[in-house]
Amino acid sequence: MLHRPKSDRPWRVVLYSHDSQGLGHIRRNLAVAQSLATHLPRLTGRAVTGLLFTGFDSISDQLPAGFDHVSLPGLTKESGGYAPRRVDVSMSRLLRIRSQLLAASVGAFEPDLVIVDRHALGLRGELERALRTLREERPQASIVLGLREVLDEPAVAAQEWERLGDPEDLAALYDAIWLYGDPRVHDPLATGEVPARLKCLVAYTGYLANGRPARPARRPRVPYVLTMVGGGSDGAALCDVAVRAPVPSGYQHVVVTGPQMPAEERRAIVAHARPGTRVVDQVPDGLASISHASALVSMAGYNTVTEAMTTSVPHLLVPRSRPRLEQVIRAEGLAAIGAAETIRLEQLDPGKLGEWIARAVGREVRRDGLDLDGLRAVGSLAAALLVGKHDGAGVAA
């Protein structure tokens, strides 16, 4: 039975991601936004509108109806730390600008739900002022921390939590923590990547996989193998191996360098490409490209992995191990259950990659045992929070 709302005002939702390197954070929030736009009206009887806060400014065509975005001055990683991407000011001044933009915008929007991706207080605390003001002025608002299923090796993750202060304080600030994964593959509570004190807030959603929007794509006339490296800022080494790998007769190899790969690195990769290999900087739709591939080679970033897990395409994961072990842990967990294969980059060469491709094409991989319904779960969890706080009632499944 549909919940009967006490108000017809659309739910107001804020999604924050700091967005420095790669496309993972914003892609995850775009998927969540689409889920909320799809499920909240059905579950609560109220429309939804929202704002995405991001350091990228080219996402307008990917937003669901009723959503817009606020572009924060961009960041990049430099010498192990963060630096302004474009504007010529100090990092401390840029963070003040971003913090003030966040506080003013969140305060004016008066959201009912805030979902924070990965950084509980924002990058270097830039979101803390906005969250604490919201908690004080709108106690009925729900604040959620969304975490990918792997953070890092436990000791490093513990240091990051310690820098945030007392877990009791975080527990008072947040209403829920959503873990975007399947604990049967990797459980960050069991490993200690998430403090035990916060266990009472945790809900496992499953991977944010099934239900991601994909543009229709024609099946190619020539079968192909696909190599992808996400945004591409740290994918040159894998692409260089991939373009020099032999390709089975009758197949093409499409190597996607990503829009963030430096131009000089991309030129070198194009120069090394062997016959039958095509280098592009991006594809119209990653999920559609993966679905039609005969085999997939990629790094082990969250979004590429979750999209691939919805298909039966054989998948070789080549995780990065710097600046954190997140991708290595994810790749090994999926390999342990037979959902993918993995090899470290330093152990890979064109010959080995060509051998894997030759074995992989023509096969299918079953991934039925994975919980891939995280986007549906996010919609239900959000509806329960909103209705529970605002209308004081349950919500239909």
Results as ranks from 00 to 15, higher is better:
306 T>P: 07
257 T>C: 04
271 A>W: 09
297 V>H: 14
246 P>K: 13
258 G>L: 00
253 H>G: 00
253 H>Y: 02
252 Q>K: 00
196 A>Y: 14
303 N>W: 08
190 A>H: 13
286 G>M: 06
203 A>F: 02
309 M>E: 07
191 T>P: 07
236 A>I: 06
177 I>M: 04
289 S>T: 09
247 V>H: 11
302 Y>W: 08
303 N>C: 11
285 D>F: 00
198 L>Q: 03
297 V>K: 10
233 S>W: 07
277 T>R: 13
300 A>G: 12
306 T>M: 13
287 L>Q: 15
214 A>H: 10
183 P>Y: 10
192 G>C: 03
192 G>T: 14
188 P>K: 11
239 C>V: 06
176 A>K: 03
275 P>Y: 10
212 R>P: 12
253 H>N: 04
298 S>H: 05
295 A>D: 14
269 I>R: 14
284 P>V: 13
203 A>S: 11
276 G>Q: 13
296 L>H: 08
200 C>A: 13
178 W>E: 03
281 D>P: 10
287 L>W: 12
184 R>G: 03
211 G>L: 07
195 P>N: 15
278 R>W: 13
244 R>E: 14
271 A>E: 11
250 G>D: 04
272 H>L: 05
215 R>W: 03
193 E>T: 14
303 N>D: 04
220 P>H: 00
244 R>P: 09
232 G>T: 05
258 G>F: 07
198 L>A: 01
282 Q>V: 00
306 T>Y: 03
289 S>H: 05
253 H>K: 01
275 P>C: 15
299 M>S: 12
188 P>F: 05
199 K>S: 15
253 H>I: 00
299 M>Y: 06
303 N>T: 05
210 N>Q: 08
269 I>N: 12
230 G>T: 11
280 V>R: 12
306 T>C: 11
297 V>F: 04
305 V>S: 06
304 T>C: 11
249 S>C: 07
188 P>T: 08
253 H>P: 02
202 V>R: 02
200 C>M: 11
276 G>W: 14
208 L>K: 12
184 R>H: 04
202 V>K: 03
306 T>E: 08
240 D>H: 10
248 P>Q: 05
305 V>W: 07
236 A>G: 04
302 Y>E: 10
280 V>T: 11
245 A>L: 13
274 R>V: 08
236 A>S: 10
